[in-house]
Design a protein around this nucleic acid. Structure first.
Lengths: 187, 187
DNA sequence: ACATTGACATTTTTCGATATTTTGTCAATG
DNA sequence: CATTGACAAAATATCGAAAAATGTCAATGT
């Protein structure tokens, strides 16, 4: 038997995701998470070594779910442009609405957390995979990785500058279009 | 007589630039600035209505000087690629070294200050002017303004992520190259 | 008259000492 | 053996007093 249908860690991480999303990192206690998970606080410490580990698990959980959503949607889309555009809009615009809704949850985007940095790295990897073939075939000097990284930079700067702005989708579209033109894609 | 060679406001702004650059916004007092300018604190209030106005003047001063530097250097460069690359590297890498050297001066980059937002807007305008002709002639759907904005977003995200990283110059170069390829420039 | 400033009231920030909360780890329990 | 009540250490919140900074004005000097 590989794993129960939902491991205890998974259940606790799910509870943590809810509480962290609602109150942010600083304002949620291990007691809150344990209560939401229906276990005692020491039991939570048996599942994770410390609060940071719970946080990392919650972030990873959210990230994995978002990537599953994106990849499922991508399967039904044709053309690099449509696929990249959907990935970026889904990740950048709608990806973290729940989190950003709460003003105290800005710490969920603090790059000082390794788990948060990994969210950006994962998205960069996703973009890299999407554009790799086109970059190779177009004979671009820069690698797909570094081009993807530039796009993520742009989306991060955009998020900082135009947080919750409603033209965020349009600006992401321009960034995507720029990247695609720069690698010779016209799909 | 239009203006004395250096108005009192200008002298005070120069003093403010020094002190703000060294200690950041929060940790410099009107007394510090007045002392540096060699005037009394009430005299400083005669020149500017409040601390924010002094801050705005200092930022504007720095920004204008950096733009003068960039434009002077641009006059000696040929080709859009060389010109845009120099502008971006100068602005993004070396532009605010002095300020960023001090760990307490992060507030100098806080977008909540209108004067700081204007720094980004001014740089966006500079980039827009540089690329306008090429964008027009290449028949790109997006405007030069919005393309320049994307580049500024990217540089802002880069600054957040890779603060003081020594590969910042290279990443800026990639962003510049991406933008130029996307508008069909190969200079 | 006019530019300048010492001195003041008000607001903001800092500080320190105390109380509360939270974390992480047991030995005890069922 | 899985679970938890209870504990010590550390972090954080609280709060009143002290210090500092802001913005203003009447007084000063030229």
């Amino acid at each position: 038997m590989p794993h129960p249908r939902a491991s205890k860690e998974e259940l606790a991480a799910a509870a943590a995701t809810e509480v962290f999303s609602r109150y942010g990192y600083a304002r949620t206690t291990m007691g809150d998470i344990a209560a939401r998970a229906g276990i005692s606080r020491p039991a939570l410490y048996l599942l994770f070594p410390d609060k940071d580990a719970v946080f990392a698990a919650a972030i990873r959980r959210m990230d994995e779910q978002k990537h599953r959503e994106i990849k499922a949607a991508l399967a039904g889309l044709d053309g690099l442009h449509a696929r990249l555009l959907h990935a970026c809009k889904s990740w950048g615009c709608h990806g973290f609405d729940l989190i950003e809704a709460h003003p105290d949850s800005a710490d969920l985007f603090d790059l000082r957390f390794p788990a948060v940095r990994k969210v950006y790295d994962n998205f960069q990897a996703l973009v890299t995979d999407l554009i790799r073939d086109q970059v190779r075939s177009a004979g671009i000097a820069d690698t797909p990785e570094v081009l993807a990284r530039c796009l993520v930079f742009g989306m991060r700067g955009l998020r900082e500058t135009a947080r919750n702005g409603k033209d965020m989708g349009r600006l992401i579209a321009v960034q995507v279009a720029m990247l695609l033109r720069s690698i010779g894609d016209h799909s």
